[in-house]
Design a protein around this nucleic acid. Structure first.
Lengths: 240, 240
DNA sequence: CGTTTTTTTGAGATCGATCAATACCAGTGG
DNA sequence: CCACTGGTATTGATCGATCTCAAAAAAACG
């Protein structure tokens, strides 16, 4: 059995005791698979368990009555896609599987038990949701103040680093299993403009994107274009 | 001594025991006042206490090298403007006082003690940061998929409800102490366009805004224009 | 293969940005 | 009380990034 990617992710930020790892592992009631393009959680639900993504890509999204959609987060292995439903209770958005997803289910009762008995582990789970929040804020500033091209570059830089911390990169290459329409929904752009922006990044020699595989050809320049600084990802190891 | 607005805010969402209220109150090490236009916390800092806003308005913001600014949150009485610094450690953004602010300081040591000894209260503090996250997601969708006018309407609706839950509204009127430039920085618009959007809302008879006082003249229509649904504010009372 | 989905291209329309000037308003010092 | 100052709000004119509509090309799929 290989390492739980959540453990990988948390260990990047603080020390986890063996006991805590065991608790985390035993909080999982079962593992399920969700097919691509299916909802992992529906908007409006009151789930009694949270979904920890072991493998695959997922997206949180909101839909408007007229069909417009905004993706508010992209999730990868190690991400708790709806840990917040433990305390928020009602899902105010849906979560969609972008690829086939292997998912560990953690009952809210188990989470409550953790908060009762394991303060340090609780803080790390809380930290997890705080990092989600930090990413949201970064997306807000990118959305509000960056050009479409810069925003795209920023997004690629972020996803690359996040995948790297859970060992899901291969050199400068990683899997980006989104259609251009989905990319548009996450950046707040039209599909057509996504296409043009990508062409620009390619022409500039910053990225290559073939099939699912995105390769960063010039990290420094891509970072500059996207005005990317990774502080907000909290990659430092500290006592929390 | 009047009620701590954080207690007001939390009691809207779950029951607080007298003991928990006492613990919360005694976690405050001191109260300070920050003048308008001063930073409450600076970007890059490693604070050892968090700031609970008792009175006034504050904004979280990021600044780019070229001077562009994006405000990622507006905070009002009862909001813990940087509770996340307890676990995130490094401030990845600044927090600015928009008006004179009365602020309670809560040492991180006291927060750590709460997480060690008061699981339910811990969950409520966590909840607090989760609601911040939900608001961020809502702002993302408004930013990505709403017109400038709709976005403005949405923002006004949200702020009104948030102020109402902490008793800071007077009928349909509340204090909106932002300049149009600051509003632009929160909505991701230019100052000029903010002005034009406001004129439109006024001409449509949706709002009045004189000095600091904003009055909602037609709540239903404003809600429609802003496609506003308050689910994400988690105003229901539930056991958490 | 034929069918569907996704990507790409073109052309025109639009929302919101930018630049620049003017009007307004509150506070300050004389 | 008034002139001056600096900030804020408003208006006008133009520009440009991004959207929309529509169709073709390419890729993925069964």
């Amino acid at each position: 059995m290989n390492t739980n990617p959540l453990v990988l992710k948390l260990e990047q930020r603080d020390r986890l005791s063996d006991d805590e790892k065991r608790v985390l592992e035993s909080a999982i009631s079962r593992v399920r698979v969700v097919e691509a393009d299916e909802d992992i959680v529906h908007e409006g639900e009151h789930p009694s368990e949270s979904n920890l993504l072991l493998d695959g890509f997922a997206a949180r999204y909101k839909i408007f009555s007229n069909g417009r959609r905004q993706i508010t987060a992209i999730h990868v292995a190690g991400d708790f896609v709806d840990l917040h439903s433990f305390l928020l209770r009602t899902m105010d958005h849906g979560v969609l599987a972008l690829t086939p997803c292997r998912i560990a289910l953690v009952p809210h009762a188990a989470l409550e038990k953790i908060t009762d008995e394991h303060p340090h582990l609780t803080r790390l789970l809380w930290l997890n949701t705080l990092i989600d929040g930090a990413i949201h804020r970064e997306w807000l500033t990118a959305m509000g103040r960056l050009s479409a091209t810069a925003h795209m570059a920023h997004f690629i830089c972020e996803l690359f680093l996040r995948l790297k911390t859970v060992g899901r990169t291969d050199g400068d290459t990683f899997q980006l299993p989104l259609t251009q329409a989905e990319l548009g929904d996450t950046l707040g752009l039209s599909t057509v403009h996504v296409n043009r922006v990508l062409q620009e990044l390619r022409k500039e020699g910053l990225i290559r994107w073939q099939g699912d595989a995105l390769t960063i050809l010039d990290w420094e320049r891509l970072k500059n274009v996207g005005e990317f600084t990774p502080t907000y990802l909290n990659l430092q190891h500290e006592h929390r």
